[in-house]
Amino acid sequence: MGSVSAETVVEISGLEKTFRIGFWRKQVAAVRHASFSVQRGEIFGLIGPNGAGKTTTLKILMGLIKPDAGSATIFGIDASQAASRAKVGFLPETPHFYDYLRADELLTYFAHLYGMDSKAAARRIPELLDRVGLGQVGDKQLRKFSKGMLQRVGLAQALLPDAELVILDEPQSGLDPMGRRDVRQIIESLRDEGKTVLFSSHILPDVEQICDRVAMMVGGTVRKVGRLDELVDGSLRDVEVVVRGGEAGLAGLAALATRTTREPLGTTRYLLAPEASLDGFLQAVLTAGGSVLSVAPHRQRLEDIFLLEAARKEAP
């Protein structure tokens, strides 16, 4: 984990946003009294199911949506002010670009929007294209790019201003495993450079791997915020034992497990409660004439907390 100083980069406090949708202007609360903060130098994950309010929160931070109540600041400046975005790079969810432009032309345009002069842009752009793995195709029109390549262009434009804060909305969306790994590495390298990264994601193993802290949003509210080791205690959830043979004693073995799954190749998968006696179960397998193929303890993961919170209707 990177070192975390006390300087607050992003501060969200009591944020509220309700959309009025359709002909009858039906009210849909997208964000409800959300509060969290991101400190300088940390990688902060915003996780939650679809419709949790993650994208709305990030769009409020980028000044694309006005909040109904509460405040959102970046480096202490209200997020509705253009100045708050001077040192911020942003990758929207499934980014869309001018497809008639070449990748380097698009980045040149955005460099001008960041106030960079042409010389500085000409130095920075090839370097960035290389960093996101598009060094060889910078002179190709974006309409010829695959979804994964466009996501990389999106990452390149987010890194364009040498930002102190990088906000990424679902950066791994639509990427193959190699692309996901590359994004993960880019985020980790940003941390090594002392940048602050705030990103939303559904891919919880990646969040677990790279985030210092997370905020879990469900139904527009922030349910949990904290360091991963505070949220996930790592306690034993269950033990999985895979057995071959031992059909004669199956009924007896099943009685000792919380779940039994017969598999096509003649193996049986048993889940034992944490408090169950593993020695006693293994002894019973041998007695029944079976052989133990594997024993795997399952510890609590972020996904367990996530599913638990998502299943709960309202915050306590």
């Binding site: 980028m62 911020v88 929207p92 869309h96 001018y98 999106g154």
Partner: peptide
């Protein structure tokens, strides 16, 4: 409609600009 606007307005520019 094409959502290209998100990439532009998320830069440090005022909407009037």
């Amino acid at each position: 409609e094409r959502k290209t606007l998100y990439n532009v307005l998320s830069k440090p520019i005022d909407r009037a600009t």
